[in-house]
């Protein structure tokens, strides 16, 4: 058993993937000599050499585009975009090029690339370096999208992503890089894409969470005196409809804990699907606990007001379970006594 921080687990997954397959190459800004700004690729340059582990200029479009081309040419690149917000200057290469090559060559050419990136608020990086931007990828046919929730899932999903034949974007909540988890790295730890994990079982309600909200939701559930099932979605495209529907069909209630703003993101996708499929079987309205529809504020008090905290999630879940009606979000109650 190893007790690894999430950034170490990612480094271990990269090393194991490179050892397993000589076509795996790693590149990005300051990933080689410095081992990554979040220390996710420490030691790879020393172990695998400068041919396979490279620092790039600050050129996100070239990073992703080069990954697309290298993958088309027969390598398995794992490229890093330091903050997912930077995908904005490289999105063409992800969703309009990389994701479509296989389709537009009618299967003649494949793009087995992985683009890893850090996401999320809670570290004082403010409006331009804190978003989760899942919505940028959710509507991209040809692309798979994964979001890890800790060291074990980061290792397992990254290993699986590298083995995929098509392009995968792997999002890593940066607030979790320093958190530790015990698990045994290796082939048995590989987590297949498209399969959600039930983190705890329960009978009264199903809570679905992603990324750093998995831990937040788990903490919130522990504060409540109720039997709640918690599902970590892990893969957002294609997501595990079956596991979620089966759970909600049993519990009759669905709540989603989403880090992204109310509008857009994976939450509305899951909510609408469950609403469509299980209409009439639900005993309460579907509850979405999200951030408000605003940019991520810098100042600490407001950043942790913006993010759904365990305390807030517990309060919302508690009210919802008690009344079977939707509690209003905090931002509709500003100025009122809570």
């Amino acid at each position: 058993m190893a007790r690894l921080r999430m950034n170490q687990a990612i480094g271990a997954a990269l090393a194991d993937a490179m050892a397993e397959d000589p076509t795996v190459v790693v590149f990005g800004e300051d990933v080689a000599a410095a081992g990554g700004v979040f220390k996710t690729s420490v030691g790879l340059l020393e172990r695998f050499g400068p041919e396979r582990v490279r620092d790039t200029p600050i050129s996100e479009m070239a990073i992703v585009g080069t990954a697309v081309g290298a993958a088309m040419g027969g390598l398995r690149p794992v490229a890093e975009i330091m903050f997912a917000d930077f995908f904005g200057v490289a999105l063409d290469q992800v969703v309009t090029q990389g994701a479509l090559v296989h389709y537009l060559t009618r299967g003649a050419v494949t793009v087995p690339m992985v683009i890893r990136s850090s996401v999320g608020a809670g570290r004082g990086f403010a409006a331009t370096h804190s978003r989760t931007v899942e919505e940028w990828f959710l509507s991209a046919p040809g692309l798979k999208l994964v979001e890890v929730s800790g060291a074990r899932t980061a290792y397992g999903l990254l290993r699986a992503a590298v083995r995929e034949e098509g392009p995968v974007v792997v999002l890593e909540p940066r607030a979790l890089y320093g958190t530790r988890e015990e698990f045994e790295p290796g082939d048995d730890a590989v987590i297949p894409l498209g399969v959600a994990e039930v983190r705890r079982e329960g009978a009264d309600a199903t809570v679905v969470a992603v990324g750093q909200t998995v831990g937040i939701a788990s903490e919130a559930i522990e504060r409540l005196d109720a039997s709640i099932e918690l599902i970590d979605l892990l893969t957002l495209r294609p997501w595990d409809v079956e596991t979620v529907l089966a759970s909600v069909a049993r519990t009759g209630r669905l709540a989603l804990v989403e880090e992204h703003p109310f509008t857009g993101g994976w939450g509305p996708e899951v909510a609408s699907r469950v609403g469509q499929e299980l209409f009439g079987e639900l005993t309460s309205p579907i509850l979405r606990i999200t951030a408000p529809d605003v940019p991520v504020p810098f100042t600490r008090d407001l950043e942790f007001r913006y993010l759904p905290t365990a305390e807030y999630v517990a309060a919302q879940l508690g009210r919802w379970l008690e009344t079977d009606t939707l509690p209003s979000p905090w931002w509709e109650r500003i100025g009122e006594e809570v």
């Binding site: 403010a126 504020p297 810098f298 100042t299 407001l302």
Partner: peptide, 16 residues
């Protein structure tokens, strides 16, 4: 320091 007397009310942080 993220205070409302800041250049952008503490909502942007010192890089903004």
């Amino acid at each position: 320091l993220g205070r409302s007397v800041g250049a952008v009310e503490g909502l942007g942080g010192s890089p903004h």
